[in-house]
């Protein structure tokens, strides 16, 4: 279909009244792509760290996520066990390798297996790359230690997030991803922005949670270290 490609590009250039961009134009466009600038940034997210955490929690709850705060990583299993018990949910976890080191079963009745999600896993537990305060959005990256299916297949998705990873805006996460970029570019196969549990309003505009993805999104915020 290279014929189609050639035809499309010829039509575009004819419509724009020029050939391929001149060297000067192309250089400017390359700069735009290689050193991207942010556009308008909402003031509500340009705040200090403690305020960011407060805004993140408020916005996540607005989007029907629930949030628990704990002091250290060692407190996470207890908080998860309590949440599952309070909601009458199974205590069998499928956890991302990234959070498999957390002592899930030491002082709780939880059982945890690391790996990808199957159709029958009731609870998925993952970490997160960042939380975006602006809209209470979690940013999750795919990778060998964080399979994407865990975010979507289980009925309950639990995310362990270090409070230090909460940033103000989406652009903050792009900046840190670009700074850490390797040979594969700044992005992994999948970047998931997740704001609350799955939902639909396709039937008579009635809002229902739990469409195809998780019915519940529970965030365990760890204040102590940078986890």
């Amino acid at each position: 279909m290279s014929e189609a490609r050639a035809h499309i590009f010829a039509t575009i250039r004819r419509a724009l009244g020029r050939q391929a961009p001149s060297a000067e134009q192309a250089a400017a466009l390359h700069r735009r792509l290689d050193a991207p600038e942010p556009n308008v940034i909402p003031a509500r997210a340009q705040i200090d760290a403690p305020a960011r955490i407060g805004l993140f929690i408020a916005e996540a709850e607005r989007a029907d996520a629930t949030v628990a705060r704990v002091a250290t990583v060692d407190d996470v299993p207890r908080a998860v066990a309590d949440y599952l018990a309070a909601n009458n949910l199974p205590s069998v976890l499928k956890v991302a390798p990234a959070v498999a080191d957390i002592p899930w079963s030491e002082r709780t009745a939880l059982s945890a297996v690391a790996g990808v999600a199957g159709g029958g896993d009731p609870v998925g537990v993952t970490g997160a790359f960042a939380g975006v305060a602006e809209t209470g959005t979690l940013v999750l990256l795919s990778g060998p230690d964080s399979p994407t299916t865990l975010n979507f297949l289980p009925d309950t998705h639990i995310v362990v997030l270090a409070a230090a990873r909460i940033v103000g805006t989406y652009e903050d996460t792009w900046r840190s991803l670009r700074a850490a970029a390797g040979g594969d570019g700044p992005l992994p196969r999948t970047v998931n922005w997740i704001t609350g549990p799955s939902r639909t309003a396709d039937i008579e505009q009635t809002l229902l949670l739990g469409a195809h993805g998780p019915r519940r999104l529970h965030i365990v915020l760890v204040d102590g270290d940078d986890g």
Binding site: A63, S142, P144, P147, T148, T149, D184, P188, R189, T195
Partner: peptide
């Protein structure tokens, strides 16, 4: 404020990825 899921996909699964 934003849709529940916004997903950025870049290429097929990478070496070491467990799914995708």
């Amino acid at each position: 404020e934003i849709s529940v899921y916004t997903t950025f996909s870049t290429g097929p699964r990478r070496p070491g990825d467990l799914d995708g």
